[in-house]
Nucleic acid binder design. Structure first.
Lengths: 341, 341
DNA sequence: CTGTTAGCGCATTCAC
DNA sequence: GTGAATGCGCTAACAG
């Protein structure tokens, strides 16, 4: 292993000067800098992050903490995210620590250990919740982070998010415009902010058209195929079934489609269906039969912004430029039937 | 953030003594140790790994380097492994660094950076290859590692593996015993040792029964559904098709089944099929129609041994006890037809 | 059993 | 521009 000291002796310079040259300080002659850089490459010098961390307090290592649930195909959301982030940081010569938390115990403890002991100084947070304890803790510790989503509508920390209120509103509007008035929503778990915001958009669209919201038509549960099946069954076998159903993601959609098939209901003849599509591999709404009209925001377009925002934040860039909205596309595919007034 | 120094002042002891108490040294009075441990818990002390690494040369952080290919459902092997390992190490208060390598460049560079710069001092290696450069490098650097598999039949480093020669032999024997003599093998990529060893077992079984091996019946390629389809097609449409096919895993099996279906061939009436089953979620051989006879070694039973072996190795345990064979089960499910002599 | 001393590799004062 | 000294938090000699 080669250290700064080795380099300095090799070059006949002081350790200090080599350090300065490597870190791009201004008070180094161009010639010296060139020599140092060349030698560093030749000798395959790699700065010792532990040593650097000890003196600067920062290691540049970033982390992602995931809840410790068993892996299932439905977790392809996390898989995509982990793979994307890890590859991105690896390319940038950053260390990416994946921590799958022990389900028991406070999640904040995991962060504390990672910060105090492990020297992590940057985090990506997924699936923000109302009153998110992770956010509170990291803010208090003044550790940089970026969230995929938001905990409040207008936060003062960096984030990458889509406009979920608009997602809910758009999907609902699509149906209302075709004459639907009994519109159901198989949403996600209440604890997540985006679920509530999509619901807000849904309710706003209904209100704008003077449609009374029927609480029985809005179901909130884990975003699984199972929920799609059970929720769909509950909706369609109730006394007053909806004429259209909105699905929070394509996993729910998949379940719903199965239930509809089992009930002998055809899309869009018997019931119209729309969904939000994260464009996860193997779960494309375009692949369903019939293809389903969706709002679409590819998850795979979120790693890079998330990573860049985090690195920017760790570099001390102002928060304003680090609050970024991802695009939401509307793709009509004919899974909505026209209802005559 | 709370340091050893804080603890020592709080307790009225020297920093050294507190360190010793925490690290389980013998020369500490029981009373002192108890006091220290209690105070550490109360003040939520977490040792600074960077500092420790600097003086001991070891941080306890372990890493997994994966080749930088795009993620697909077929990578569920890696997904399972990553999730299992990460969860295990997290529970043991170890940091687990996932590094998805940039495809370009020498893979060894990734390890160099992680060791020199990142302070990693233990690795899990997956998918060992003939003349594996990673093994050579880590051995030279004297960095502890554990391999899922082996690079040579009797290595002097720790590993967790199954007896792949026996897997090949067993699957082939099952078919020979039912009278098959034209037995094909859709194996994996030649670069992997386990592929060669399975082939050895296959050839040995054939030889033992005096069956001449037909090179056209052994196909080696990436273990994908596509290979199962293409390879199966090639086998079954050749001039002299086999009466039985062995699949290297259930992904290949899945592809083969599709081809057979497309060709109007029925299992086991028209062709017998066996496979090796890693028991990946969603790819259970039991779920195929008809259920397929397999050798089975659940992947999910490998993280824990792998992790334990690595930690043992890092603790300096002798290698003898760290070379472990996982079980291989034979499950007969009636996908083999009897061939009358 | 306990405390004092030294140094891991690096960045950052402060002098020159 | 450059170099010498200092300390980050911790463990490992070395005394007592």
């Amino acid at each position: 292993m080669i250290t700064l000291r080795d380099l300095s002796r090799h070059l006949g310079l002081s350790v200090t000067q080599v350090s300065r040259a490597l870190n791009g300080h201004s008070d180094v002659s161009e010639e010296t800098r060139a020599r140092v850089l060349q030698a560093a490459k030749d000798l395959k010098y790699h700065p010792n992050l532990s040593a650097r961390k000890l003196v600067t307090g920062r290691s540049g290592m970033v982390g992602l903490v995931l809840p410790g649930k068993p892996v299932s195909p439905g977790d392809s959301f996390f898989v995509q995210m982990v793979a994307g982030l890890s590859a991105y940081f690896s390319r940038r010569e950053r260390q990416f620590v994946l921590h799958i938390a022990d389900g028991s115990g406070d999640i904040v403890d995991a962060y504390r250990r990672l910060i105090d002991g492990g020297g992590l100084d940057g985090f990506i947070l997924l699936s923000p919740m109302v009153d998110d304890s992770r956010v509170a803790y990291l803010r208090q510790r003044k550790v940089p982070f970026v969230i995929h989503g938001r905990t409040v509508p207008a936060p003062d920390y960096p984030f990458f998010d889509i406009d979920n209120e608009t997602v809910g509103h758009t999907l609902t509007r699509l149906l209302i415009e075709r004459g639907h008035r009994r519109i159901a929503f198989l949403n996600g778990p209440r604890r997540h902010t985006f679920v509530e915001w999509r619901r807000d958009g849904y309710l706003r669209a209904l209100a704008e058209s003077g449609i009374a919201a029927d609480p029985d038509l809005h179901l909130a549960d884990e975003m699984t195929e199972g929920f799609g099946m059970i929720g769909g069954l509950r909706l369609m076998t109730s006394g007053a079934p909806p004429t259209a159903v909105i699905c929070g993601n394509t996993l729910i959609l998949k379940g719903l489609i199965q239930t509809l098939g089992a009930l002998g209901l055809e899309v869009p003849r018997d019931v119209s269906v729309v969904a939000h599509d994260d464009a996860l591999p193997g779960l494309r709404a375009a692949g369903f039969d019939p293809a389903v009209t969706v709002t679409r925001s590819p998850l795979e377009m979120s790693w890079q912004p998330l990573a860049e925002i985090l690195l920017g934040h760790m570099d001390g860039q102002p928060v304003d430029g680090l609050q970024i909205w991802g695009p939401v596309e509307v793709i009509e595919r004919g899974s909505i039937a026209e209802i005559m007034g």
